[in-house]
Design a protein around this nucleic acid. Structure first.
Lengths: 193, 193
DNA sequence: ATCAAATTAGACCGAACAGTCTATTTTTAA
DNA sequence: TTAAAAATAGACTGTTCGGTCTAATTTGAT
């Protein structure tokens, strides 16, 4: 029947805590409290707080990539439509928690990307896996002449990713979706074939 | 002849320290050390670390706005050219410190925008002042038919700002300018009239 | 010259930090 | 059934944190 806690369960709770609070603004003790585990279990599973945060990012990154794969398999939507639907969903998701959290990989990258090479590497790997998926959708859109072929699919994916992520800082200080909606409107108009 | 230290001098050193290290990753003692001031002076000038960080952000924001005003007054460049030149300069600036720091207002927004309402308000005010300046340049470009009139000048300014800021997280984890260059190439192609 | 105000100076404080340690319990494998 | 291994449990540690406090010094105003 296994032990009381699993690494995965702790990582999932860690995802919520770290996404909301960032890295340095939350202590290991608070993570333990929210996860309901003793310190011994935490340091049995993880080498350090940094190791924990990296594993949280990797788990989220991989699970998000899988979710994206499934999302973009939807045959009811064209590539362009599915990209719009994807980002609309992302904006709506941020609205649900009142624009306070953003993306954990972005938050970790900005806060500790500079001081933790291992975090930087992990964050980059997760970004790249997402960008690959986005690029393959863009490419399909280009083949169907929905999306401009002026630039490569990966360039357009990078462009979409950058734009969306840039709205996070405005979102966090204004706490509304106005700027995300502006980005959405302009970007999808611009990448039209 | 005045006292040994001035608020402005401490804020300027604080700008470097906070931009590089973020908020929670640097202690007040380290700031004192780098600025060469005793703790008594710090807490004589500032109510708290948070108050200090907010004043750093405001000072930088205002000085950057003034710099932007001057930059965009250059009569040798057209509006579109000056926008491109501005962002090229920004990318080059980040390259100079090895892509490790980014923008202090972005960093503070992402890290503590959620937990400090006053920081969020200040960051937003600075962003807005920059966006106003960008929007006025965009508008001139629209009047000269250099820039698309499909969207308002402020929308295009928000769009440029978001895109550029989004490249910071990729920059911080890859430590190169590739993604900033992609964003630059696509964005300025897209906003052409 | 005098005095109040501002600045300088750094020792000091309780709280919180990440991480260690030992003991105990539970599970798995032999 | 038993021994090893893994997980649970939380008290404890040394360090660093933001912030306070008192005293000395410097400055500007009168």
């Amino acid at each position: 029947m296994g032990y009381k806690h699993s690494i995965e369960e702790i990582l999932d709770i860690g995802y919520d805590v770290l996404r909301k609070n960032g890295y340095h603004n939350v202590g290991v003790n608070q993570i333990l409290k929210e996860a309901g585990i003793p310190k011994g279990s935490f340091y049995n599973f993880f080498e350090s707080k940094e190791d924990f945060a990296i594993k949280v990012v990797n788990r989220y990154g991989e699970s998000n990539a899988k979710w994206m794969e499934v999302f973009f398999e939807n045959p009811q939507l064209s590539p362009m439509e599915s990209l719009k639907s994807f980002y609309k969903f992302m904006i709506d998701t941020n609205e649900k928690d009142e624009f306070l959290s953003g993306c954990i990989v972005n938050n970790m990258s900005i806060e500790i990307g500079r001081i933790s090479d291992t975090m930087a590497t992990s964050a980059n790997e997760q970004f790249l896996s997402w960008l690959d998926i986005l690029a393959s959708v863009v490419q399909k859109g280009q083949e169907l002449k929905e999306i401009t072929t002026k630039f490569t699919a990966l360039e357009i994916a990078e462009y979409l990713h950058a734009g969306f992520y840039g709205t996070f800082s405005r979102m966090k200080v204004t706490r509304n979706r106005k700027y995300m909606d502006i980005w959405y409107k302009l970007s999808f108009e611009f990448i039209k074939a």
